[in-house]
Nucleic acid binder design. Structure first.
Lengths: 105, 105
DNA sequence: TTTATTTATCGCAAAAATACGATGACTATA
DNA sequence: TATAGTCATCGTATTTTTGCGATAAATAAA
């Protein structure tokens, strides 16, 4: 084993878990904070601000892209990464709704 | 390697990542949904509602407990698990604040 | 055309996560 | 005391994750 039994759970629960997995690394949180500031978007600039190698940062960017949290647009030899505003809102709502499911008074 | 370089990132980012990791499994999301309903709290009852073995469910409960999202109180031979209302609120606020960091207009 | 810049991908190693059965501990009941 | 019920933990197998260096691809500049 070692595999998550995704098929056995609801789409809704898998969806939340996928978002959470994308956010489950301090490196990816740090990357998102950099992109939030919108001061830069290049992979190289991010690498300079994060204590990880270029290949590792690139891998994290790919995971954030797979989770639809960020997008990348080609700009010559560079790639400009930016937060996908639409999906960011969707993720925000998804978590909000989930947290609201338990409302202690 | 294979280890997350937690030391290299801020406490704040590690904190969010830890919460997210606790929520990064559909099994744990499903368990939390069961506990949200407050109809039951026993490990055995949860096992009946989740397509995983007793030992696996127990392991997930431990992880949720380590993340301070749930608590367990001993009730004879049983253990009553319940969501830690205070920390649930803290987690909610933590995510809310993080999501607010990117506010597209 | 050659060179530099930028990023993705490949291959690898180490560690963590997921899941299970078996077993142990602990309480309640017969 | 002996038995049943409840749950945690141990040991194990498999997969996934994290990270790195090296290399490839693609564009821009000399």
């Amino acid at each position: 084993m070692g595999t998550t039994k995704s098929d056995e759970f609801s789409l809704r629960d898998n969806h939340i878990a996928e978002y959470a997995k994308a956010l489950s690394s301090p490196a990816r949180i740090a990357i998102l904070r950099i992109l939030m500031k919108r001061e830069t978007c290049m992979c190289g600039d991010i690498v300079e601000q994060i204590p990880l190698s270029q290949s590792t940062v690139s891998q994290h960017l790919r995971e954030l892209k797979n989770a639809a949290i960020i997008k990348g647009s080609i700009d010559g030899p560079k790639i400009c990464y930016y937060i996908d505003a639409e999906n960011w809102g969707a993720m925000r709502k998804t978590f909000k709704k989930f947290f609201k499911g338990f409302d202690p008074e």
